[in-house]
Every structure is written in C-alpha cells, then in structure tokens.
Design a protein around this nucleic acid. Sequence first.
DNA 1: TGTTAAATAAGAATGATTCCTTTTTAGGAG
DNA 2: CTCCTAAAAAGGAATCATTCTTATTTAACA
Lengths: 151, 151
Amino acid sequence: MKLQEILAKLKDCGYKITPQRQEIVSLLMRENRHMTVEDIYGKIADRYPNLSLDTVYRNVGILERLNILTKSDFGDGKGRYRIKESDGHRHHLICLKCGCSEEMDFCPLDYIDHREIKDKNFSIKKHNFEIFGYCSECVQKEGQPVAERNK
Amino acid sequence: MKLQEILAKLKDCGYKITPQRQEIVSLLMRENRHMTVEDIYGKIADRYPNLSLDTVYRNVGILERLNILTKSDFGDGKGRYRIKESDGHRHHLICLKCGCSEEMDFCPLDYIDHREIKDKNFSIKKHNFEIFGYCSECVQKEGQPVAERNK
DNA sequence: TGTTAAATAAGAATGATTCCTTTTTAGGAG
DNA sequence: CTCCTAAAAAGGAATCATTCTTATTTAACA
C-alpha cells in the first residue's frame, strides 16, 4: 500500500490528515521494520520539536485498528509497530536485537486442520505467528539484545 | 510433568522449595490455563494473607526461565502464564474472554521451510504461535471480552 | 472565511511490573 | 538438633509504558 492510499483510507474513515499523522505513516513506510512508540517519537521529534508522545500512541492505535499497522510483542513490555504488508498476509522473522524483520510468506493457518477447530466450536478472532532470533547482522555482533530477558 | 518433578527441578537449579512457591506451582497445575499474576495472587491470598504480589512475579519469572511456564500476551498489557506441556511442544487456542486454552498438537515450525531461514542466516531463538478467539462456552455468552481492544 | 468536530500538546494519572530494604526462612553443615 | 547463611519473602516505593484530561489548535467542509 502506498502512502497516498493509506492517507486516503484515513480520510475515508473520517480521520483528518495532519502533518504529524503523515510523518508517522511515512516514517513507518520508510523504515519498514518494527518500531516502538519511543523509536517513532525519537525520529520525528527533530522536525516536530513539540510532538507529544500521546500523539504517537493515539495514531499507532488508530492505524492498527484500520489494519494499516500490526503490533508485536517482543516480550519486553513495549509494543512494536510496523506497516502491514499489502499483498496479503505475511509473518516475520524478527530480530530481538535491532528489531529488523524479514518477511515470510507463510501462515500457519494454511496448514492447520480447521475441521478440528470447528469441531471444538472455537471462533477464531486473530492469531500470532512470529519467529524471534538474531538477524544475520546481529548474530555476529556481541552485546546484550534489547529485548532479551533470559539470564 | 508432575508437581514433584517440578519441585525437583527447582531444587536442582538451586532454588528453595518454599510454601508460596509450591502453592503457585500447584495452583497453575490445577487450573491448567492462562492466568495473570493477579489471578494467581487472588487465588492464593486466601491461604496466605500476607502474600506479596512481588513474590508471584518473582516466581513466575523463575518458572518461565526454567521452562516450566510459558508466558502469553493477550494484547491487554498483562502477562499470562500457564504450565507448559511436558510431552513436547504444543500451541494453544486461547479464549479472549475466559482465558481457557485448548491444546493444539501443531507447531508451525514443522511446516516451515527451514532452508530458507538458514539461507537468510537468521538464528532462531523462540517463536510464538497462538490463536485467539472465543471458546465454545464464551462464544454464546454476551458481554465484552476482557482483552478486547478493537472498538 | 467561519465553524466545528477532531487532533494536538502537555502533563497528570493509571496500572503492570520491578526494585529496594528489612525481615524471615529453607536447607546444608556441624 | 541447632546454627549459619544465602535465598526468599513482605511491604512499600519506584519505574516505565500507556492512557486520560484539559485547554488549545487546526483540518476540512460549508
């Protein structure tokens, strides 16, 4: 999805196109990786000296609800957001250190036995599938990964 | 894994077997579902009037590190813990309302193309696969699910 | 160009989790 | 059985991500 399309979608849903909103969306498109609210805030605050953290939170929330962003949990208590792929449904290899993510054109729901779930009368609302580890760049670097919690 | 085995594992790892610790483990075994720290605390506080929340946090942390518990994120900012299955590796259908979970003997890593990941030089540390929705009991009940966030 | 609902900034409030300090205790040694 | 000590617990303060509140500003339509 292109920036213009995203802005159009926002507009269609009754949201105003503010400069802050544009910055947030275009940053996330440019970076194309999982970012914390703090990350986003940090990158934009240069240009918008009095940007509010709350504005970032509010907007990633909206963008998530509109299915423009996905939220992930690396296990360190911070939400991480990234642009959702447009061409269907992908999952990611996520680097615990740098936060970069590689796409996988793979969804476990394609392989699971849905009859079994139907039989259980379970109504699926969402699912998570993420593989965490270290990307090729970080695997050779030393240092504690940001989101590592095992001692 | 039986209670005795878990206690033995704790001991082997140099942890003391305290009554609080036993209560926490046996509660989680009895309930066999995802519980928040508050849930656990609430159930045990009857018998241990001056149990500390911190004690529950400390212990579920230890138990998670020892691979006795798994932690899940339902998306509402609270960690949820449950006993990990002993006989290998399972994933769960998790009810967003009551927190119960049904086992699935399915792991997406069995279906994924590992060569592709190897080629990317990605080093896997852990993965998440959870399906969220409503269990057969909750699907027919009204009311807002605890962890629902979409408006 | 004026109007108004929506969005923002700023900072306070909340809530889960962690940290700190003091007291208690499990469990091994003697 | 008693002592000793490191580990654990209690209690409460501190932290940190996130959300809320209020006053101010602004996008966007008429």
